[in-house]
């Protein structure tokens, strides 16, 4: 009996020790993620890479079930959709004609000017596996990673507009931080007035426009594009349209279809070369510069 209590006591002491150690370890992990964030993010992506595939077998049937359910819902509206699509097709035929003419005209003008255009953007398409599942962050995991050439900070678009940027790359998975996340800020330009602003996420699908340099010429319906300032995003990717909220603040109605994210394109941009010196022109020496 006495032996029993003594082993129980030592077990209790050991347990208390373990609790202390675990507490310190967790606190250390949190502090590490605050101090040396890139390293913590690498650790996180390693964990995700290691464990996410083991969840995938569970995810696949559920995904297909939900997709089937939503497809079935859409069958019930198929007639109306058909009518709508016909009308739309009619309109689009007109647009197609106009676009063709414009394209020809554009080609002629370009040929006249001998303009050198930017290299086309290359992209990789991935499938969204899951959203973050947390009420505080707006992000998603996609099934492409470093192996496929995804880089941190690349822009992610769906067919219609900018969705977000890559924040965290694993070997085969990467994480997209949505424009609506509170930690997302994107420099934008508003067309046609040319005003510059920043779209700052606030966990809603209509993020506000911050730091608008002037409200002159900005109105609901103006198009919002990335400006390329800061060098993270390439310029001229559509973000959405300006909208006015009831308080009279400018917000952006995002063009990307956030309600149904299935495939996402990650843009691969070759970085812009910086010109960092005057070049090696003969005669341009120190003395000349001092004059």
């Amino acid at each position: 009996m006495a032996q029993d209590t003594s082993t129980a006591n030592s077990w209790k002491a050991l347990r208390r020790f373990l609790v202390g150690i675990l507490f310190v370890l967790l606190l250390g992990l949190f502090l590490l993620s605050r101090i040396d964030n890139p390293r913590a993010e690498r650790f996180r992506m390693a964990l995700v890479d290691r464990f996410f595939p083991s969840f995938e077998w569970a995810l696949v049937p559920v995904t297909s079930m939900t997709r089937m359910a939503s497809d079935f819902q859409s069958y019930t509206r198929v007639y109306e959709q058909n009518q709508e699509l016909r009308r739309e097709l009619q309109r689009m035929k007109g647009w197609r004609e106009a676009a063709l003419q414009l394209e020809q005209k554009n080609a002629q003008l370009l040929a006249l000017n001998n303009v050198k255009l930017n290299a086309r953007l290359a992209f990789i398409t991935g499938e969204v596996m899951t959203d973050s599942g947390s009420p505080f962050s707006q992000s998603a995991l996609v099934n492409i990673g470093r192996q496929d050439g995804v880089q941190d900070g690349s822009a992610a678009v769906d067919g219609l507009g900018l969705v977000g940027r890559i924040a965290g790359v694993g070997e085969v998975t990467s994480r997209i931080l949505f424009l609506s996340d509170v930690s997302s800020s994107v420099p934008v330009i508003i067309i046609p007035s040319g005003r510059r602003a920043i779209v700052r996420g606030d966990n809603s699908v209509v993020p506000p426009l911050d730091f608008l340099d002037s409200e002159v010429g900005v109105q609901a319906g103006s198009r919002v594009m990335t400006s390329g300032d800061g060098g993270v995003f390439p310029a001229d990717i559509l973000i959405g349209q300006v909208a006015l909220d009831p308080q009279g603040h400018f917000r952006v109605r995002l063009a990307a279809n956030y309600e149904n994210l299935e495939f996402i394109r990650v843009l691969k941009v070759t970085p812009r070369e910086d010109i960092d010196g005057p070049g090696e022109i003969i005669g341009l020496t120190e003395g000349v510069l001092d004059e």
Partner: peptide, 29 residues
């Protein structure tokens, strides 16, 4: 077991894009 609690908390922190170790610490306590 506390070890299991800590393991799952850290794993879910990593998978759900929360600050690493924060909710794990709070949940553990």
């Amino acid at each position: 077991p506390i070890l299991a609690i800590v393991f799952f908390a850290v794993l879910s922190d990593a998978l759900m894009m929360r600050p690493l170790g924060l909710w794990a610490l709070v949940l553990f306590v």
